[in-house]
Amino acid sequence: MKPRTSPRRLPDQVFAYALLVPAFAFLVLFTVKPLVSTVVSSLYDRRDEGPTLDNYRLLAEDEVFRKALVNNLLFSVLTVPVSLALAMLLAVLLQRALKGKALLRAGVFAPAILPVVAVAVIWLYFYQPNIGVINEVLGWFGVTGPDWLGDTALVLPSLMAMMVWKEAGFFMIFYLAGLQAIDPELDEASLLEGTGRFTHFRRVTFPLLMPTTLFAAIVALADSIKMVDFVFVMTQGGPDNASNLLLYYIYRVTFAQHWPQYGAAISLLVIGVLVALAVLQIRLLDRRIHYR
């Protein structure tokens, strides 16, 4: 057969770029353009006069912003490791041959498929001081439970506990997948050598799960900053701003106070912090990861 020749043929380079055009178009439209306009917007004042650095100056003395930042850092630094540790523990436990394993796995995973708003409504009633489930149970043991969401010292830890409950089941799934990928021969080798279960976990399972941990840690960190729906439902950032988180504050500034320029300045700072943290995580953990 005669080789087919096209009458007009595009050069490969041009064709490759042409194929990428739709992807680029979407990237520019939904990522680059918003980012650029956020930067530009943050340089204007509330009456859209500028450019000026007033928003950033204001940021330095904004007490509510500082409080939201500290709250959010606490929230992230505590919920991420606890969720991951719990997820890993649950995965290792639920991987074994166990009666009712499927049911237990489903039970642990259930919170992860619930929408955050639904979780918040459920826990709002768990936490009610007088009619809530938690204090009811404490009451059986003669303990008068505190007001979980109404106490400035307890509100943030209470929200953290809820977040861990929701996230642990989700990351357990990743760890279960990670465990499937570990060669069962390693298990047998440990058994033959008489290695203890804990040593096996520490020296074999844990290191081999590190790639999963890195991935999960980055997702969990992003979640701990971007999932704030429950603040709307449960506390509105109160009392006394004790549960105000960054994204909630950005929402309030941008929409409730109709000050998108200042909201843009805060957003940029948050993005900066997130990127820095992700880079740090990858740098720190990458050295200790055993890729096969």
Binding site: Q128, P129, N130, I131, P146, D147, L149, G150, G238
Partner: peptide, 14 residues
């Protein structure tokens, strides 16, 4: 009255 937040939403239930 409590020295914790008296919640607007649930005070009627209380």
């Amino acid at each position: 009255a409590p020295t914790t937040e008296v919640a607007w939403g649930t005070s009627t239930d209380d």
